[in-house]
Amino acid sequence: MFQKRIVVCLDVRDGKTTKGIRFKGNVDIGDPVVMAEEYYNQGVDELVFYDITASAERRGIMIDVVRRVAEKIFIPFCVGGGIATVDDMSAVILAGAEKVSINSAAVRTPSIITGGARRYGSQCIVLGMDAKVDSSMPSGYGIVIDGGRVKTGKDMLEWAKEAESLGAGEIVLNSIDADGTRDGYEITATRLVSESVGIPVVASGGAGIPDHLVDVLTRGKADAALVASMVHYGDFSVGEIKKVLSESNVPVRLD
């Protein structure tokens, strides 16, 4: 049976995870490679690393992280943050990542999606979209960039369809309104995007309890759900989330 994916997202700055992340057992871990292994052992289906390193000259550190992660975990993982050219994508993929995620750069230069897809195949190219409620937009949601500060004037659904036609293989839809609330995913926006495109949609932003994942993977029609703080602070393990999903008849990988 085909299964819904649980994706854990890690923010990385200068080669370290950004928060004093605490697994059950209260051990502070700052090494993204050690954290990746922990989630791998918990049974996560996929990982995303977002590089939020500010200075360009320190970005090589991330490539080293990618290389070390690839040696330790044997599931797919995606790298995003600061990727603006096809050469940036190459560096990450050649270091061992399955996928690259592009967000603001794709809004500014949509042809980067096509360039990446031609070189590595659509399955490698993930479009990250930050959506925000905007009643002036046809779908009711607009696309924002640069961490939600800048409105692009793009409608969420128009951009999702355009990205698919340009060659994106997957969409990570992050709701700026829900992000950080831990009150649940943006179900309506997720369902709208998932029903408008033929590529998988990963829901992001707002997860607080396992039932939120049940909701977005059923009513929200998401193909995968991204979690961060709800697992980073030890509130839930990936295994506990999957147990709830399975009991709610959402097919997930338990072995």
Binding site: F2, Q3, D45, G198, P200
Partner: peptide, 11 residues
């Protein structure tokens, strides 16, 4: 009524 490509885990 399924996404193509199939991306993910299957039994």
């Amino acid at each position: 009524d399924l996404k193509v490509p199939q991306i993910g885990w299957n039994t």
